[in-house]
Amino acid sequence: MKLSRNAAGGTLSRSRKVLVIAAASTAALLALTGCAGSGSSGGSASKHISIAFVPKQLNNPYTDVELGGGKDAAKATGDTYSVVGPNTASASSQVSYINTLTQKHTNVIAIAANDPNAVCSALNQAKAGGAKIITFDSDTDKNCRSLFINQVNAKDVALIELKQMAEQINNEGEIAILSATANATNQNSWIQYMKQELASNPTYSKIKLVTTVYGNDDDTTSFQVAQGLLQSYPNLKGIISPTTVGIAATARYLSTSSYKGKVILTGLGLPNQMRQYVKDGTVKEFALWDPAKIGQATVYAAKALVAGTITGKSGDTFKAGSLGTLKVGADNTVIVGGPTAFDSSNIDKYNF
């Protein structure tokens, strides 16, 4: 019987040891799980997110470069990247895509708005469902989003385009603007600054802006509008086209017309699209920035918003890969960089 009690006691002792070890292991596991959970709920920067880009329209060469930058950044961060959007750039054409993304519980919707207000109701519903909203390239009303990723300071864009035009027409003569859509916030902002500068700068007192027309960011429409513009204004000395689609279409028309070398063209263009027109003398110079950086900045801003390391207020900063640290400025806007002038001396250095 003594032997039996000792055996029983030994068995009980071993059982207690197993229970103690199991309890300790469970406690450790719970502690680790608790740490991981608190990091996730607090917005861990390493948390993978889903980000969907909604451009003004699909199959736009400029937009393709922007989206390529976003895709590369999402690949580097391990996040889920997608693109949805309309084939034509109309005011309300993006709404149905926003609604679908809301239903899918996409973490971040990044949109280049065709109209500053037409998409706001859909975006506010997405926000109510938990999505973060970022605008890029073309803004909405600031109450509809958390952050705007802007390529450059709007006034700087206006001034470089106007300066390039003025120098080539010797600060005198009739000019016109061929823009994208009538409701595009980025183009309208640049045009407004150009008008202000024309009205206030004595250097430009002999330059007359005769009209602003729209090609709807469509190649064929822009080509036809440029043709009609020159027929309607026979004394036109120059055209400013602050849209990559518009400037390329206008250059194509000018290059084979009697206006080549007589009507000055400048604006915002992609080096790869404009190279042939610079080399054949149709265009002397134009401007732009690297659109891929906009897509890249948008992805890193999205991660920071979801992580909670920024809220979009002025003074917030976030790391954006090779772009370094970017800062949120006034009106919850991030400026990625400044404009670059392209001409025959440097255009072959760029490939986008």
Rank of each mutant, 00 (worst) to 15 (best):
Y204N: 08
G281D: 05
G337F: 11
V336F: 11
G246C: 11
A330I: 07
N332A: 12
S41M: 13
K71Y: 05
P242H: 04
Q273L: 14
S90E: 13
I133G: 02
I239V: 15
A158D: 04
M1I: 10
T11H: 08
S96T: 11
A304M: 07
N153M: 02
D72L: 12
F286H: 02
K284F: 11
G37T: 12
A302G: 15
L123F: 03
T340N: 09
V18K: 12
G68N: 13
Y81K: 09
V306E: 15
P86A: 07
I98Y: 09
Y62I: 02
S241H: 06
N186C: 04
A226E: 04
G78K: 12
L254F: 05
N6E: 14
I294H: 01
A182D: 10
K155G: 03
S232W: 07
G267R: 03
E66N: 06
S232R: 13
S38M: 14
T256H: 07
L209H: 06
N124T: 09
T77N: 06
T221E: 13
I335S: 06
P55R: 01
I51T: 09
A287F: 09
D316S: 06
A76G: 03
L236M: 10
S146V: 00
K313G: 05
V213C: 05
T212N: 01
I191P: 00
D139N: 14
Y350I: 10
